[in-house]
Amino acid sequence: MNHLTDLPPWAAILVCGLLLLGAAMTLIGSLGLLRLPSFYDRLHAPTIATSGGTILICLASMLCFAVLQSRWIFHELLIIFFVTVTTPVTLMLLGQAALYRDRVKERSDVPRKPKPAAEPGSE
């Protein structure tokens, strides 16, 4: 707690608030992963952790180190950029893979391929 004592009170409150809110959002997202019943429902849960949690926690650390002026604050910007760009791509591919597997297994609770049906194997 050497460097944290140098924070002025307003910055300290803001940093704490952002950090706690971000951690709470992440926790809610992971709780969704635990509680929601089907895979397609669970697909929505991690986006809360990324869009809410990551941005808030990165903002907290940017604010903390900008006020302390101990180093450049740009790494967090890069982290926000990477996470917001890459997570949708991952989830989209996972959703497609799950849909493909469910169709191969001919489960009844997923929508069929729209007609006219494409020949199997080509997309």
Binding site: Y40, L43, H44, T47, S51, P88, M92, G95, P116
Partner: peptide
């Protein structure tokens, strides 16, 4: 559009059919 819809927590993009121009979504 795919990135925006998937980044929104309530919606997830699953499939886009180019011939039918229809988009399959899963919504919470």
């Amino acid at each position: 559009l795919a990135c925006i819809l998937t980044a929104t927590p309530g919606t997830a993009w699953l499939e886009y059919d180019r011939r039918q121009k229809s988009l399959l979504l899963h919504v919470l």
